[in-house]
Design a protein around this nucleic acid. Structure first.
Lengths: 238, 238
DNA sequence: TTCACCATTCTAGTATGGCAGTATGGCAGC
DNA sequence: GCTGCCATACTGCCATACTAGAATGGTGAA
């Protein structure tokens, strides 16, 4: 996080820009878990007043990325496996409903658009472009929801998936290979194209459950980034 | 909205209190849809500064209850049938997953606790206590999610159901009778107690789809409270 | 050496002021 | 009567100042 002022457009509202930059810095571990930050500190770095930083902090707290402690300071939160698992549960429920509806309605062009995204994912995987792959993976899921007019559902998921995003950013060191993810995406699109709603649901559920098996490995590789182990996460994962 | 200062505890953070009071006033139509409000106006009424009011406004905007227009003012939004339908979709997906898990795991005491809530609902229905009934209905749904440790899922639903809350507040004039809702709750609990996950899901889906049939009647009874009719809502409701 | 007290510093939350954009009303000219 | 221009008022957004609570470090006494 060397140059934050580089990117603030004074023509647009400042708070959302600060929020986006900080979210990105947290997800990419430029602001590692455990980092102490303050309104004043961040305001100085961005060259803005504290107020919009405060607004950004409040939103980041809602996303589970920071903890604001009155009078004491704000801290980038460690990744909670429990929160990842909880968010995944909600995400699975919603995305299963989305693909169920996609398979039932089969909107014109949706399968083709998704297939094109998958082709781009393959290119990214070949090039070893992890960040690009993540972006395309997100475009895939977003394209699914928005392809059937479920923009609101996607916006809800966007609000809750920060922890999963952090895990996925860390996941290029031994977690699920990109080729496996691509295969899972293919299975989803295949079931949608075939109008097979139960199969589409099952494929999406399998896809989103992948994180449950890779999560312990990632946590082991980055123990400092995670909240200390809590057995409750394992129980709720069932 | 006569006496807002009545209720602000200066020992606690002010912004969340203002947000809660305004949310309540909007849901109960004390601040009717279309009302113009401003940071300065609300701040004067609560006897606080504009800053925490602004924070409350931002959160209310996220909940879809107000629209903040820079430089021009803030307005209590009319109820959008489309948004109700969109929120219902997400809610159905998540709550179906919750009851599915409840029926599979059958935590000790859950069915009994839910049955006790239903008994209280019956009392409220007999007494014609609509507001009390709404509170108990919400307790039922919250108790379900929290009863299986899905607190996070419930908190997500809380964040998106403001529009549905407004509709339900308006629904005591000809919409679904309380007795029908109680019957639906019973069916859900019965399926959970029997460990029949598919039946529990189906019962919850039926229950949450109830609003789709009553929504047009409510909108007809309160045309000024709703966004003008848009055919897209009917399409997305399928 | 340890503990208690005090001063200083830091923090988030709130209060107040300034700014740019928008809306409205009044007035003059055609 | 209509239109355009200007002055005024209002708005949200951001900047700055104030406040209360928490943390830390220094000092003196036991």
């Amino acid at each position: 996080m060397t140059d934050l002022a580089h990117g603030i457009d004074p023509q647009e509202a400042i708070a959302p820009q600060v929020m986006r930059a900080l979210r990105e810095a947290i997800v990419r571990t430029d602001l590692p878990p455990g980092t102490l930050i303050s309104e004043a500190d961040i305001a100085r770095r961005f060259g803005v007043s504290r107020q919009p930083v405060r607004e950004a902090f409040i939103k980041l707290q809602e996303a589970g990325l920071v903890g604001i402690r009155p009078q004491r300071g704000t801290q980038v939160l460690r990744i909670s496996m429990e929160e990842v698992v909880n968010a995944r549960f909600v995400r699975e429920a919603v995305e299963a409903a989305v693909v169920h509806e996609a398979a039932e309605t089969r909107p014109a062009g949706l399968a083709a658009r998704l297939a094109a995204l998958i082709a781009e994912q393959e290119k990214a995987a070949e090039a070893g472009d992890g960040v690009g792959f993540l972006r395309l993976d997100e475009a895939f899921h977003r394209g699914l929801a928005q392809g059937i007019g479920r923009d609101f559902a996607w916006s809800v998921l966007e609000g809750i998936k920060a922890q999963m995003d952090r895990v996925r950013f860390l996941s290029f060191e031994g977690a699920t290979p990109m080729a496996d993810i691509i295969g899972q995406h293919r299975a989803i699109v295949g079931a949608i194209a075939a109008g097979d709603a139960p199969a589409a649901e099952a494929a999406m559920r399998r896809h989103l459950r992948e994180i449950l098996s890779s999560l312990p490995k990632i946590a082991e590789a980055h123990p400092d980034y995670f909240v200390p182990r809590d057995d409750r996460a394992a129980r709720t994962a069932a």
